[in-house]
Design a binder for these strands. Structure first.
Length: 949
DNA sequence: GCGGGAGGC
DNA sequence: AGTAAGGCCTCCCGCC
């Protein structure tokens, strides 16, 4: 018999978060109900988990009765400077009680006590009765209640963040505070809380507070130890504000012995009467939820898009709360309110400070704002800011021109606000924790604004939202999404600025036209955000978005801005050598061919080789031309055709020269003197990053000639480059995900994985069998076929098939994994990484064999490649903080190459940096995922990138 | 603007 | 019945 499990819902804090995270819905009476909707859906989800292992047997909602509590008598400033809740949130407070009553759930509040104290008291009482407790909240104060050290069968207390759908136990508390729950109060007392106006100690934030408590073991010990600390500002502050710290400790202490207004047993959850609930849902227009109760509720509107499938799930609630088979019964949302069509004539051009302030106030009042920046070039690192557009709701938008005109002596500079004054006013808004900034590819806007000292936080990015939901389904450009989701055609950039030679800078666009274009982008981003946020929340996928991609924006922006130093001299010397090599080879090739032709033209080359010279065995591609690819030329070379080798060499040198030694010189930024690549966070369907302008993820390394290019990537004077890469990460993940005991054991022991495979496949380990085994291992990751392996290994299809069969026999987990993955992809249409990142495969059930097989191979590869991408991204998100915590802020992460991170560090700090880098990377999967294989990280250092390997 | 070819993981 | 037959990318070039 499972024991009782009490869920305590922190209703007051939930509604604030729901308000900021959900679209501003209104009910048929025009009352805003976005937060109420979120709250209702959350209750639904919780009550729906009734029969599940971790689900509630008892449940109560706890609310703040009033803002007065014993804390006010301790400290009259407590919560004194809390801002008033936003206008459209206030009417939603009483509705929270209505919603709770509609579910016939107990709603507990008490004069003079805050919700936190009631929650603490119920938690303690339930624990004493031997119950488990889950606190539904993300309030950091409540983390003090999490059971410090769950042993065996003792009842436990954890927290559940329903918005992010994550449970937080002791580990999560550690991750956040660096100490166990029992010391959280001490940390909180030191750091203070500006929202609640808990004073703390001046100059002590979360980092220092954690460090002090870790070092001294408690607040009192830290205060006592201050006297013996070495003289510093911190020491002075600790001594001077010791009383404030002690007062703060009392303020954050939870009152655990409040009288319980309702006894524990009365909180039992055993069925929800449907009548009052349906009435409530219909009253507020939550139609699809109402429809799922059954009865005479009207069916959701036809064509409700993504909501429809969920709405047709039907009947869950009416049938005594049986959870559905797969357990993930996110309630369907009400149809989003119809917004008026986009009307560009309503946009405002902001040219006065009064108007600017009005927009800023509007953004603060509503709690979110969509932003977009316009520049005079695509280069975000040094491009000039031309204007900023804002939108706070469907139907509005403005453009603030800042850098128009002045480039053309004939045209006058239009009337506009001064840039410095405007940015000074926008700066606090863009950094305001209470105002969510929405945009499409905010990494670009962040880079542009960073030039002026502005930061953007917190943020939501519609590009990343779309990617989290629909990777593999379609592109994620703003215009494409507007067409797809809003049925709206955006003004194209080229309609405003033209193309080619006659293209003008955005700074030259007349203000009326610029306003239409720029404000439209902001409004479209805002409307998309409403839709996509909502879908993400319904369809799942928030975890990877919240924990990985969203925090990555700032990390990647910082890397791009840092850039990497490239030595022009080295490159131009290489270009010279390559020119000579090419001229020499060209002469020899022409002599051999009996006349000049364009070697770089595969068409001409094919004709020369197979028609003119009459070489045998060529094959033709679908264009009807002879194939002249590497394998074809290598075949000719083996047949003793000397021109083949020369052509191969010519191609290699030509590639290196045009793509790297020549092109990279042009990419050195005039202003910074460094090369700043641009990373796309949505460039690869699997979740990998991609790099462009220039692509720094394909700098040569395999050939000796190519490797010389790497030597041009150098550390700044006094610094060293550190290259850290995951060893065999994809094979390790395959071993874990497919659960292959031999492979896992080999990785655990640090054995050579290709040798092990060679032993298993061929019975002996030689240079030759090891090389073959390596090829097979990689082919497996890419979704093997006997044909592919045969051509790669230059053996017959039958031989290739025999090797594959033997591989599957030796490692049965691999073929099971492939089958499972494919079945999942066929049924659901997508695959998932260990962290829950989805990739869609719309062609997985195609009737076209080629398409289908291609999708199958991709589907086998995606979870492995994608999990690897998730892991290195998690490492990147944590890296700067970890380095800073270790006092290594001057160690800078510069590049990511899929399984490698490159850093630049002052010479004296290299030895200190390496263990930090290694630790962050090798533990990056944790705590979300515990791998059954170690993640080894190989680290090299050097004056240049070539030497660091 | 496409496709072949080649650089990386 | 026979074909084509390794995953994820970006960049350059010739050619249309």
């Amino acid at each position: 018999m499972a024991r009782n499990h009490l869920y305590l819902v922190d209703g007051s804090s939930y509604i604030f978060r729901a308000y900021h995270r959900l679209p501003p819905l209104t009910n048929p009476q025009g009352v805003p109900v976005g937060a109420v909707y979120g709250y209702t859906a959350m209750l639904w989800k919780l009550a729906d988990g009734l029969d599940k292992a971790e689900g509630p047997t008892h449940l109560a909602v706890i609310l703040d009765h009033s803002s007065q509590s014993f804390r006010n008598s301790l400290y009259d400033q407590y919560k004194a400077n809390r801002p008033e809740p936003p206008e459209d949130l206030r009417p939603q407070f009483p509705l929270i009680r209505d919603a709770t009553r509609a579910f016939s759930l107990p709603c507990i509040e008490m004069e003079g006590y805050e919700a936190d104290d009631l929650i603490a008291s119920y938690t303690v009482a339930a624990q004493a009765a031997g119950w488990d407790v889950t606190i539904v909240s993300s309030d950091k104060d409540l983390m003090q209640l999490v059971t410090p050290d769950p042993k065996g069968d003792e009842p436990h207390v954890d927290m559940l963040d329903t918005m992010k759908n994550v449970r937080m136990g002791r580990e999560a508390v550690f991750e956040k505070f660096g100490v166990g729950p029992e010391l959280v109060g001490d940390v909180l007392a030191l750091m203070g809380d500006s929202v609640d106006n808990v004073p703390g100690v001046r100059g002590v934030g979360p980092k220092t507070a954690t460090k002090l408590i870790q070092e001294y073991g408690s607040l009192e010990a830290a205060l006592a130890g201050a006297e013996t600390m070495k003289p510093s500002k911190l020491r002075d502050n600790l001594i001077e504000h010791a009383d404030m710290a002690r007062l703060s400790r009392q303020l954050v202490e939870l009152h655990r012995e409040c009288p319980l207004p309702q006894p524990l047993e009365e909180l039992r959850l055993d069925g929800i009467p449907t009548e009052p609930l349906r009435d409530f849902l219909l009253l507020h227009g939550f139609k699809s939820m109402a429809a799922r109760i059954g009865g005479d509720a009207p069916a959701p509107a036809a064509g409700a898009g993504p909501n429809r499938a969920a709405a047709m799930g039907g009947g869950v609630l009416g049938e005594a709360w049986q959870p559905k088979g797969n357990g993930s019964t996110a309630p369907a949302a009400p149809a989003l309110p119809e917004h008026p069509a986009i009307d560009r004539s309503r946009y405002e051009t902001v040219t006065t400070l009064d108007a600017l302030d009005r927009w800023i106030a509007e953004a603060r009042a509503i709690g979110h704002v969509a932003i977009d920046t316009e520049t005079d070039s695509l280069d975000a690192i040094t491009g000039g800011l031309v204007g900023v557009s804002l939108s706070t709701a469907p139907g509005n938008g403005c453009y603030i021109p800042l850098g128009h005109g002045g480039h053309d002596l004939l045209s006058e500079k239009p009337e506009q606000l001064p840039m410095d004054v405007t940015l000074a006013r926008l700066k606090p808004l863009f950094a305001d924790d209470a105002v969510l900034k929405i945009g499409h590819n905010l990494k670009y806007d962040m880079a542009v604004l960073a030039q002026h000292g502005l930061t953007i936080t917190p943020l939501d990015d519609t590009l990343l939202l779309s990617f989290a939901l629909d990777a593999g389904q379609h592109g994620h450009g703003l215009d494409e999404l507007a067409k797809l989701h809003l049925e709206h055609q955006c003004i194209a950039f080229k309609e405003v600025c033209g193309t080619g030679k006659s293209q003008i800078s955005f700074a030259e666009v007349p203000l009326d036209r610029a306003t239409e274009y720029a404000a439209e982008d902001a409004e479209v981003a805002l409307r998309l955000w409403m839709l996509l946020r909502h879908r993400l929340w319904q369809e799942g996928g928030t975890k990877v978005y919240e924990m990985v991609d969203r925090p990555l924006v700032a990390a990647v922006t910082a890397m791009e801005r840092r850039g990497i130093l490239v030595d022009r001299e080295t490159l131009s010397r290489l270009s010279g050598t390559f020119s000579q090599d090419m001229a020499r080879l060209e002469a020899a090739i022409h002599a051999e061919a009996g006349g000049p032709f364009t070697i770089g033209s595969p068409k001409q080359l094919g004709e020369v080789l197979f028609d003119k010279l009459g070489l045998k065995g060529g094959r033709k591609g679908k264009s009807g031309d002879w194939s002249t690819d590497q394998s074809e030329l290598e075949r000719l070379e083996r047949d003793g055709v000397p021109i083949a080798r020369m052509i191969l060499e010519w191609r290699q040198v030509a590639k290196l020269k045009s793509t790297y030694s020549d092109a990279l010189q042009d990419q050195i930024n005039r202003v910074t003197g460094r090369v700043h690549t641009s990373y796309s966070l949505v460039g690869a369907q699997t979740g990998r990053l991609s790099s462009t302008d220039p692509n720094l993820q394909n700098i040569p390394i395999r050939s000796e000639t190519g490797r010389q290019i790497r030597e041009a990537f150098v550390a700044a004077p006094g610094n060293v480059l550190i290259a850290a890469d995951y060893s065999q990460i994809e094979l390790r993940l395959a071993a874990h995900m497919a659960d292959v005991p031999q492979l896992k054991a080999a990785f655990a022991e640090g054995a050579d994985i290709h040798s092990l495979t060679a032993e298993e496949l061929f019975g002996e380990v030689t240079r030759d069998t090891r090389a073959k085994a390596k090829t097979v291992n990689f082919a497996i990751l890419y979704g093997i076929s006997r044909y592919g392996l045969a051509s790669r290994m230059e053996i017959s299809n039958d031989e290739a098939q025999a090797i594959i069969s033997r591989y599957f026999e030796r490692f049965p987990g691999i073929s099971d994994y492939m089958q499972r993955t494919l079945e999942g992809a066929r049924e659901r249409g997508y695959t998932e990484t260990l962290f829950g990142r989805k990739t869609w495969f719309p062609r997985i059930n195609s009737k076209n064999q080629g398409e289908r097989q291609g999708a199958e191979r991709a589907a086998i590869n995606a979870p492995i490649q994608g999990t690897s991408a998730d892991i290195i991204k998690r490492a990147m998100v944590r890296m700067d903080g970890a380095l800073a915590d270790a006092g290594l802020s001057s160690v800078r992460m510069l590049l990511q190459v899929h399984d490698e991170l490159v850093f630049e560090a002052p010479e004296g700090l290299v030895d200190a940096a390496i263990p930090v880098i290694r630790r962050v990377m090798s533990h990056a999967a944790e705590p979300a995922v515990t791998l059954s294989v170690p993640l080894d990280v190989e680290v090299g250092t050097g004056a240049n990138w070539g030497a660091a390997h």
